[in-house]
Design a protein around this nucleic acid. Structure first.
Lengths: 328, 328
DNA sequence: CGGCGGGATGTTATCGCTCACATACACCTC
DNA sequence: GAGGTGTATGTGAGCGATAACATCCCGCCG
C-alpha cells in the first residue's frame, strides 16, 4: 500500500479511500491511484483489514459431515450466493451431533473474525446449540432451525409432505404409509407432520411411520419390513435415496410400481428421473434457499443486530412414473 | 492477550509463548497463564496472527461449481483431513472453466493469506492455469492435474478403467464399448486411455468412445444411440450417473441387464448398489484422496518450497449384478 | 478583504499478535 | 571473583490496513 501511495504521489490513506470507494477523492487522484495499483499489481490485504475492522469478508458455514444430496447442494448454493456478493465461505464440519460441537465450531469461526455464520445442521440437538451463542455474531440456520431465537431459511418441508401425501390420496389411495428420516432431524419431523396431518384432514387412517437413516440401504431394509403388510398401496418416503431402496425391495418382491404400489420421494436428486420407474418426488430448490439464507445473514450484518426472521422456500411436486391409482 | 498477561502477572510475550507451545516457559508460569486464559475465556485472534506471520491456518480449495458426486465427496474428504490437522478450509468455486478464472481464484485466496491451495478442477483448461501461478503459495492439484509443474494427488483412473474393461473381457465379451465423459476433463481422458489400451492389449477391436456430460440424461441419450448398434454386449460407462441413464435406455428397449448387455460404471455412488440391477462399478476412495492431498500440501508448507510429487490412490472394482457373460 | 464552511488530503494511533533483541538471574569455570 | 553460558522473561517495533482527527486550500459571504 505504501508503494502504491508513493508511486501515485499520495498518502496511504488516500489509497485506502480509493480502495473503499470513498467519495472524498478527486477523480483525477483516484485515477492516478488506480493506475499505480495496476502497475504494481497491488491487491489489498484482507487480513490486515479484518484485523482493524474486526470483520472479514468471510462467512462461516457449519455443516454436518455428510455426502447427502441435500446438505451438499445447500453448501454449493450458499457458496454461489456468497461469491456473487463478494464473500468467502469457510467451512467447518461437525464431528458429532452434540450441541457442544456446534458451540465449539462457532468459537473456532469467531476466532477467524467471520462476518456471520450459517448453520446447516438440521438436527434437533445441534440447533439447540444455537440458543446460547455469543451475541455479537449474526447467525442464520439453514434448512431447519429452532422455532425461534435465530433467523431461519428453509424449504417448506411441511407443505412438501402435504403435496406428496395429497397427490397419493387424490389418486384414490385409501391411506399412505411413510418411511421417515431419523428422529432427531428436524426435516424428518416436519415431513412426518405434513404427512400425518394431511391424512387426518382427509379422514384417512395413519399407521406410525417407519424410520430409516436416509441411506438407500435403510430404505431397502425398512421397505422389506413394510411390505410384509400386504395392504400397502402407497408410500411416501422422506428422501429419494431411501425411495430407491424401497423400489429395490418392491422389485425383488415382484411388486409392480406403480401398478401395485405407488411411491413418492423427496429431494429430486438428479438420478430420480432415471430410477426404475422414474420417481415422483418433491423438489427442493437449494440454490434459492442458499440465496435467501445469505441475504438473511447479510441483512443482519448490515443492520448490526440479530434478527429472527423466518424465510420459507416453497417445495414442488414433480410427477413422474412411480405413482398411479391403487390396484382394483 | 494483554488482559491475560496482566491476570497471570507476566508479559504479553510470555502469553504468546504459551499459546505457541514454546519450551522456554517454566511449567509453573505456563500453568498460571493457562489458568488466566481459561478464566477470561480467552481465544487467540487468528487474524492478528495471520497478519504478522503472513500465513493463516486456512487452506484454500478451488472447486468447480457442481453437485457431481466426485467433486462433492472430494471436498468433504479434504475438509475432514484439514480439520483433523487444525486447518480451516475456505472454498472458492469457479465461474467458468477458463484458465483466467483459476488465476483469479488463486489471487483471491492469496489476499486471504492462505497457507496453501488445493485445486479440485479436473479440466484441461483449468489445470493449465496452474502453470503460471505466483511462486510463493504451495499448491496441490486434486483428482487430476497436469503431467508436471505441480503436486498432484489422484485416484488411479487409468487402472480403474483397466479393471472395469478387463472384468468384462474376462467374462467373455469380445469387446467393450465406452461412454466417456466430456473431452476436456482429464479424468475422462484417463479412463478412455485405460479402456482403449486394455482392449488393445487383449487384441480386441475398439470403436471410438461416445461422449456424455456426466449427467444421467446424457447417459440415457447416448445410450439410445449406442443401442442402435445391436452388436453391443458390454459397456463401460465413465460414471455411475450416466450408467443409470444407460440402464434406463436398456430397460426401455427391453434389453436385459446383464443377460443381453453388461454394464460397468465408475465412482460407486451410494445409490449404485440399489440400481436395477445393482451396478458393478469402480470405487474411488475420496476420503483417502483428501487425506493424501492434504498431506502433500502440508509437506510443501513445512518444507517451504513447491514440490511436484505425484500421489496415486488405487481404485477398486466392486462386482454387483450388472455384469455377466455375453449371450450365446 | 477577513473569516467561515466544506471538500480533498495528510498524520497519527490502533487493531492483536509475533519477531528480534534486551535483560535478569542462576550456575559454572578458571 | 570476573567472565561465560544458558534459561526465563520483558521490551519495542512492525505486520498492512482503517479510524479519527488535523490540515490545507478554495470559494463565498457579509
Amino acid at each position: 500500500m505504501t508503494d502504491v501511495a508513493a508511486l501515485a504521489g499520495v498518502s496511504h490513506q488516500t489509497v485506502s479511500r480509493v480502495i473503499n470507494g470513498s467519495t472524498q477523492v478527486r477523480d483525477e487522484t483516484r485515477e492516478r491511484v488506480l493506475d499505480a495499483m495496476r502497475e504494481l499489481d497491488y491487491q489489498a490485504n484482507s487480513v490486515a483489514r479484518a484485523l482493524v475492522t474486526g470483520r472479514s469478508r468471510t462467512l462461516g458455514v457449519i455443516t454436518f459431515n455428510t455426502t447427502l444430496y441435500g446438505p451438499a447442494s445447500t453448501l454449493l448454493g450458499l457458496e454461489r450466493a456468497a461469491h456473487a456478493e463478494g464473500y468467502f465461505i469457510g467451512i467447518v464440519s461437525l464431528e458429532s451431533l452434540e450441541r457442544t460441537a456446534v458451540v465449539q465450531a462457532i468459537e473456532r469461526l469467531r476466532a477467524l473474525s467471520v462476518a456471520g455464520i450459517m448453520v446447516v445442521a438440521p438436527h434437533l440437538a445441534t440447533t439447540h446449540g444455537l440458543w446460547d451463542l455469543p451475541g455479537d455474531v449474526p447467525v442464520v440456520a439453514v434448512e431447519a432451525g429452532p422455532e425461534d431465537g435465530v433467523a431461519v431459511a428453509a424449504v417448506d418441508q411441511y407443505d412438501g409432505a402435504r403435496l406428496a401425501t395429497q397427490h397419493l390420496l387424490d389418486l384414490g389411495h385409501k391411506t399412505v404409509r411413510h418411511i421417515a428420516g431419523p428422529a432427531d432431524w428436524l426435516e424428518a419431523q416436519r415431513r412426518i407432520d405434513g404427512w400425518r396431518e394431511t391424512l387426518a384432514a382427509a379422514g384417512a387412517t395413519s399407521e406410525p411411520p417407519l424410520r430409516g437413516d436416509w441411506s438407500p440401504l435403510s430404505g431397502y431394509e425398512v421397505g422389506r419390513r413394510l411390505l410384509e403388510d400386504s395392504d400397502v398401496t402407497a408410500v411416501f418416503v422422506a428422501n429419494d435415496q431411501m425411495a430407491l431402496g424401497l423400489l429395490r425391495a418392491l422389485h425383488e418382491r415382484g411388486c409392480d410400481v406403480p401398478g401395485d404400489v405407488s411411491v413418492v420421494g423427496f429431494d429430486d436428486i438428479p438420478e430420480a428421473e432415471f430410477f426404475t420407474p422414474p420417481l415422483t418426488t418433491v423438489r427442493q430448490d437449494f440454490n434459492e434457499m442458499g440465496r435467501r439464507s445469505l441475504h438473511l445473514l447479510l441483512d443482519q450484518i448490515a443492520a448490526g443486530e440479530r434478527s429472527q426472521t423466518r424465510v420459507t422456500v416453497p417445495a414442488g411436486l414433480v410427477r413422474r412414473a412411480s405413482t398411479a391409482p391403487p390396484p382394483v
